[in-house]
Design a protein around this nucleic acid. Structure first.
Lengths: 338, 338
DNA sequence: TTGTATGCGTTATCAA
DNA sequence: TTGATAACGCATACAA
């Protein structure tokens, strides 16, 4: 049976007190004789001593752990954020706890509680904004060190982009390509992300003298099947449209699949643009136009903020990140410029 | 400032000792008067008391946490496993710590150490099998509760599939489709996953009276670009082949992209089959044939094994999972059956 | 320059 | 049926 070495064992071996061991290994006090320090380090080495992080955390009142709450790690949008969070946390000695909520409010609450029990240094909360965040309002967030990624209706530090402007840009782009009957594949009305993008969409349409035909607003769950079903149903019902703004790439991909099934050419008959700019966007045929967000920076920044908070350092203001419209074959009616 | 309630605070409020609080809330002893128990529960409720899991773990010597070590959460193959691990852990009260290694041996070691420091209940180690696992041999695994997913050269409980047979099946499939010059997009020679799949490939070729042309064995890093570059280079060099077995879907997708660039039709000129059966496989055009693994079961089973070990329960033998060859348009030369 | 004593919050042992 | 005490491993205030 494997037994971990403790500070006391190191102390005994080095012929000093556990206090001294702690001091040497943490470099707390400069006033330690080199000889003693060497003996301690030697003993620690020999015993392969590692401080029990549980004990350290209990003593210090906080762990070197970041909770990451996302809807679904299996969603390409979030795993890039997750990766970035972990990459930023690792060199700082922080671990990342993975929490998938499927956007279920109870699960969000469950994890918020669980993570607090675990005394995490902070929580990165991405992709929430569910149900107007009712379930999260009025919570006592004191000392919780939460950073949000994406639109929420909460008074907490958050990083994100101007989704409204992004949505407007998408509509203008399709308009420039000659689209006049623009459809929208959204999420759920209660999702903040849906609300703000829809608002932008309506504004964009207004800019070009159009408005959203209620029959061309299709709600879904941001899944590929959901996008497919929306378009499939619309075609079955004889809806007319020449452009689609999908509020995420998964839905856009599903839409393309359905359009193809119904013999529509893309972008000739229907131009399509999504949100997220997932890696697949450049793999599929035609390549998918999309609004791109700096997901890695989202994750890195969020992690960095948490760590700064945990260390009681001055915390930089997150601010708004830029988006980029990647025009590709799926929406370039005149063809892709060489 | 938010202050957590402690067992002592609950005890004071209920007019009992912390010991009693612990007993009531953990249901340890039946011999507790209902009245006392009620008072304790009431006080706990009122104070929103949650046991400090750090203290509990320190006392008990183990946390309710599972370490998940994978090459890259941004890889579609692993995030499904990750999701399954988390789904299996959550209802049992276990949290999951995410660790990305990029298959770097030092990082694998780093995380193994870190996780041990954190007293995790166990470690799910997926996608390793790097460098003949030299760096992991001779380690003291006692009490580490490790479960491996995928091929490794280590004497530890592992779950996986018969990759050799899967590879053979892939070759036989292409052969049935009329392919005679079969190329291979592999990983790195030191990866166990590469070794075993390559062995199967050679066997499959032998079965049909062929053998692997060294010029048709292309090594890479399982990335999309890597698959693209391999095929692109091969075409530039005038290599002749009518079938490709890619050891993962990412590489297969890259290969298809390169084939298309060079004007080759799929599967007419070149039939392609991959491994992993990623969700994208059915989204791209043509749909990608692939060897499918029950990734969710991998993750669920691994998590369950860890939890059983942590609870000192009898541990089921993991065993071998079945694979399935999904024949789709990218390899069905005669077209997809209706 | 180093050691002793104390406490972080919990649970297990023993005694009452 | 309940409580006092000790211990998990560490870091800190204080003493020497």
């Amino acid at each position: 049976m494997y037994v971990r070495a403790t500070a006391k064992m190191v102390a005994d071996r080095a012929g000093v007190s556990p206090t001294t061991v702690s001091r040497v290994l943490n470099g707390k006090v400069e006033a330690i004789s080199e000889m003693t320090a060497d003996r301690v380090r030697e003993a620690a080495e020999a015993l392969d001593y590692r401080p029990n992080s549980l004990a350290v955390s209990l003593r210090k009142g906080s762990t070197a752990t970041i909770g990451l709450i996302i809807p679904d790690i299996a969603d390409a949008y979030f795993h890039q954020i997750a990766r970035a969070v972990e990459d930023a946390a690792r060199p700082e000695g922080f671990a990342v706890i993975l929490c998938n909520t499927d956007r279920e409010p109870e699960r969000e609450l469950f994890y918020l509680d669980t993570l607090r029990e675990q005394q995490v240094a902070g929580v990165v909360f991405a992709g929430g904004g569910v149900n107007d965040d009712e379930h999260l309002r009025g919570r006592d967030w004191a000392g919780a060190n939460v950073v949000l990624i994406g639109p929420h209706n909460l008074e907490l530090p958050s990083i994100g982009v101007d989704n409204r402007a992004a949505s407007i840009a998408a509509v203008h782009h399709l308009s420039e390509q000659g689209c006049t009957r623009i459809a929208c594949i959204g999420g759920q009305p209660k999702w903040a992300i849906h609300q703000v993008r829809l608002e932008g969409l309506r504004q964009g349409l207004a800019d070009i003298g159009e408005e959203l035909d209620p029959e061309l607003l299709w709600l879904g769950d941001f899944g590929l099947e959901s996008g497919y079903d929306s378009v499939d149903a619309a075609m079955e019902n004889g809806r007319e449209f020449d452009g689609i703004v999908a509020f995420n790439d998964n839905a856009a991909l599903g839409a393309i699949k359905a359009l193809r099934k119904h013999g529509r050419s893309i972008p000739g008959d229907v131009a399509v643009i999504g949100f997220d700019d997932l890696p697949i966007a450049t793999v599929v045929e035609p390549q998918l136009s999309s609004i791109s967000f700096p997901r890695r920076e989202f994750g890195e920044t969020a992690a960095r903020l948490i760590i700064q908070m945990a260390r009681h350092e001055d915390v930089e203001a997150p601010g708004l990140f830029p988006f980029e419209l990647k025009a590709r074959a799926s929406s370039l009616v005149a063809g892709v410029p060489a």
